[in-house]
Simulated scan of single mutants.
Amino acid sequence: MLPPLKPIPIKDRLSVVFIEHGEIDVLDGAFVVVDVKGIRTHIPVGGVACVMLEPGTRVSHRAAALAARVGTLLVWVGEAGVRLYSAGQPGGARSDRLLYQARLALDEVLRLKVVRKMYALRFGEEPPARRSVDQLRGIEGARVRRTYQLLAQRFGVNWKGRDYDTQEWDASDVANRCLSAATACLYGVTEAAVLAAGYAPAIGFIHTGKPLSFVYDIADVYKFETVVPVAFKVAASQPQGNVERAVRLGCRDVFRETRLLDRIIPDIEEILSAGEIPRPTAPDGAVGPAIPNPESLGDAGHRA
């Protein structure tokens, strides 16, 4: 009998894979995409954090079940990945983590501490003292708009501001299309990490009232370090054809270079610990994390 599956930790996985125009199934024990000509493409699903399913894909029950067992997030998206239709939930939120996250979000004093920590990680400096969450959100928005302008100047992109409509994708200019495709990649891997850590994507601190509020909070910490420069670089090169594909390839490379998947879950824990309250202990029989880190047999520095 085969041993039970041991999911690969998020930090050791490929960040994101996009699939379109194919049927996804499990054939001969492998997660494969079958195109219209019957050609199979094997996807190492256990080694991927997030699989984005674009229009033209069909997924079998066996494929969805396998992705869930190995802790890989399946996300059904629109053209170029900028519209989210549905998503899997590998492992789901854990009751102890969910209660901890909710307590921090509901208490205004604790929430402000968490928001200040997010601000410090994002901008590399402490936020102004004696500011509310709404005031910090306004300060952040001004800095973000200025950062967009500076990066556009750096890469020589004609920038008129963030302006796009998911209902009319081609109506946006190239820079905005590149940014939308780039942030979709970032949101995908961030959501996979949030779920793997056992937290709820909807319970945010800066962003509120959206299904992915916490995902947006965490992704914003890395946005200008990773995907925004990639988007402007691609837009400045004036590529012909599928600009979204060029953006995805650039995002894949920058995720690897910055070791993003190594950092997200530890950073989530650091951000929430700013609230300075103990995390509730898990009750007996609680479900463990979707992607646990294996315990080492030796001391620090030894191979597991």
Rank of each mutant, 00 (worst) to 15 (best):
L249H: 15
G275S: 08
R111N: 13
T190F: 00
P4S: 06
R245K: 12
D12Q: 08
L261D: 10
D253R: 12
G204R: 00
F31N: 00
G298C: 05
A197T: 11
P55K: 07
G285P: 13
G298T: 02
L84R: 15
D165H: 08
P90I: 05
V77N: 08
G141D: 14
H207R: 08
I265R: 06
K223R: 15
P90R: 10
K223T: 11
M1W: 08
V59D: 10
A152M: 07
S86L: 11
L260R: 05
T166K: 06
V77A: 11
G198D: 12
G161Y: 00
I24G: 02
G88A: 07
Q149W: 09
H21T: 01
T258W: 08
I139Q: 04
A65W: 07
L261E: 09
R263H: 11
P3N: 04
D173L: 08
K210P: 01
L84T: 15
L212C: 02
A282K: 08
D107A: 08
V70R: 01
V234K: 04
L136K: 03
L73Y: 04
D165N: 14
G209Y: 03
A193Y: 12
S213V: 01
V221A: 00
D284F: 06
D253V: 06
K117W: 01
V45F: 07
D25A: 05
R97V: 13
Y222V: 00
A68C: 10
L27M: 10
P294L: 00
G29D: 02
G285D: 14
E276V: 09
Y216R: 09
E79S: 06
D253E: 14
A65Q: 14
V82E: 09
I24S: 00
R259Q: 14
R131P: 02
V133Y: 08
R177P: 00
G250T: 07
Y222H: 04
V26D: 12
Y187I: 11
L74M: 06
V215R: 01
T258A: 14
G38Q: 03
R83L: 11
N158S: 00
A65Y: 13
D134L: 11
A171M: 02
R245P: 00
A197M: 09
N242T: 11
G288S: 06
P55M: 03
V227R: 03
L110S: 11
Q101R: 01
C185Q: 08
A200S: 15
L2W: 03
P7R: 06
R83C: 09
V45T: 09
G138N: 04
A68T: 09
V82L: 02
Y187S: 11
S132I: 06
Q101A: 02
V17S: 05
A300G: 05
A49R: 05
Y148F: 13
T147Y: 07
